[in-house]
Computed example of a mutant assay.
Amino acid sequence: MRAVLLESLPYESAFRVGSHHYAARLLAHDWDAMWLSHPLSPLHVVHPVKRDFEVRMRSWRAGPLDYGRLTYYNPMALLPPAPLPLLRSRGVARTSVRLTVPSAYRMLRRRGFDAPDLVWLTNPIYQPLAERLQAGCRVVRVADDATAFENVPESLRELEEAALAAADVIFAVASSVRDRLAQRFANVVHLPNGVEFERFDVDVAEPTDLASIPGPRVLYVGAMEYWFDAALLAECARELPDVSFVLLGPESARVTKAVEGLGNVHLLGSRPYAGVPGYMRHCDVGIVPFVRSTMVDAIHPIKVYEYLAAGLPVVAIRWPELEAMKAPVDLCERYEFCERLRRLLDGLGSSSGEIESRLEYARENSWDARFEIVLREVGRVLDGASR
């Protein structure tokens, strides 16, 4: 069996998202897979943010990189869709991945992936390529409300609509997205994010760069883009000067500026996924300080599952998808956040019942359980196609 995964992040990215976990489980079930990440373009060379740039360039220059039964490739597009004059048009969006150097389609055909059993599309930029592939089953995984992200040209929203219309199965991560799509499509399946419970429920050594940071420690893991409330984080750091705030994630000039002069905020940068459990195990509270928006309202955060699997109490800004998760998390409004965090820290030393509640919630929401849904839905389509 063969699968083509059309993604945004590189396979080697420090961020580990849902498709990484599903790809790992396909490989474990003896599938072969080809993973394509968001195309590079001449714009990336001049853009100030170079996240994952090196591995993406290496994949393009060296050709596909082989990781056992999975092959990773990052195409180079000459005409990237972007919210800029001439690049925001429908024509650019439709031709972008067809004008890669070299041709992404020819590369797939040479590798025997032009007629895969499964096309798994998360990044709508790849819809014009996906429709050329003779797939047994077409899946669209809607990981969030992409239409609500900043700087997304209307042309990419149109590609997502085309992908949804052509899909055999639509997996919606957020319940709100599922409800919205179910009004127009009959093949929508709720597929929330999950957690590798055994990876986070472990006793591991304290990371060396964490050992010198005094406790108690409040931890945030993840991206710190415009949806991360840097001002709120700085406010809490000022109000709780005896608490250390540890931030793991790609560098952000915006966050660095917001916490400038705050000695109890520690920006440690990105860490490999395999090393993250060590930080969670040796911190005291996990936080999710997001800025409420339409986009955030549809986020189904993997980090909450991972915090809970590590036994951490969690304080998070309240938004609809987090409420729908019904996780054992302290949800609050922005004006309450620092005080809720203070109270939680004052009462550190959770009862065994509270800890077990967190662990049980994480156990019940494993990636293995989610993958069973994937196998059921994809199998239903492939069985029907084979008759």
Rank of each mutant, 00 (worst) to 15 (best):
F171W: 03
R61H: 11
Y126P: 00
Y126H: 06
F113E: 02
D52C: 02
A165G: 05
R90T: 08
A166K: 10
D117V: 12
Q134P: 03
Y105V: 03
R61A: 14
A166M: 10
Y105G: 06
A82R: 09
A143H: 05
A148G: 07
L65H: 11
G68N: 11
V45S: 04
S176G: 06
V139F: 08
F171Y: 09
F171M: 05
R109G: 01
R141G: 06
R157W: 12
V173Q: 13
C137W: 00
P124F: 10
R56W: 03
P128R: 02
D145N: 14
T95A: 13
R69P: 07
R178C: 02
R51F: 05
P64H: 08
A130K: 00
E160L: 15
D114L: 02
R88G: 15
V45H: 04
E154R: 14
V177Y: 07
R98D: 15
Y67A: 10
A182D: 13
S89D: 00
L79K: 01
I170W: 07
W60Q: 00
C137T: 03
S155P: 07
R56D: 02
R141H: 15
R106S: 06
R157Q: 14
P48T: 05
D66E: 15
R90M: 06
D66L: 12
I125T: 15
D168R: 08
F149K: 08
R110I: 11
D117I: 10
F53Y: 13
L108F: 04
R180Q: 12
R138W: 08
V169Q: 08
L159S: 01
A167H: 07
L108K: 01
P83L: 10
I125Q: 13
C137V: 06
Y105T: 05
L84E: 02
G63M: 01
R61I: 14
A148W: 06
Q134K: 12
V97D: 02
A104G: 04
L65Y: 09
N123Q: 14
Y72C: 01
A165W: 04
I125M: 11
A174M: 00
A172Y: 02
V46Y: 11
R106Q: 13
G91E: 14
N151C: 11
D145S: 11
V140I: 05
L86P: 01
D117C: 10
V142P: 09
V169D: 08
E150I: 14
R51N: 06
Y72M: 02
V45A: 15
A143Y: 01
V55S: 12
R180F: 09
R61L: 15
L78S: 08
S103E: 10
R51Y: 08
L121Y: 01
L87D: 12
A167R: 03
L133I: 07
M57V: 15
P64L: 06
N123W: 08
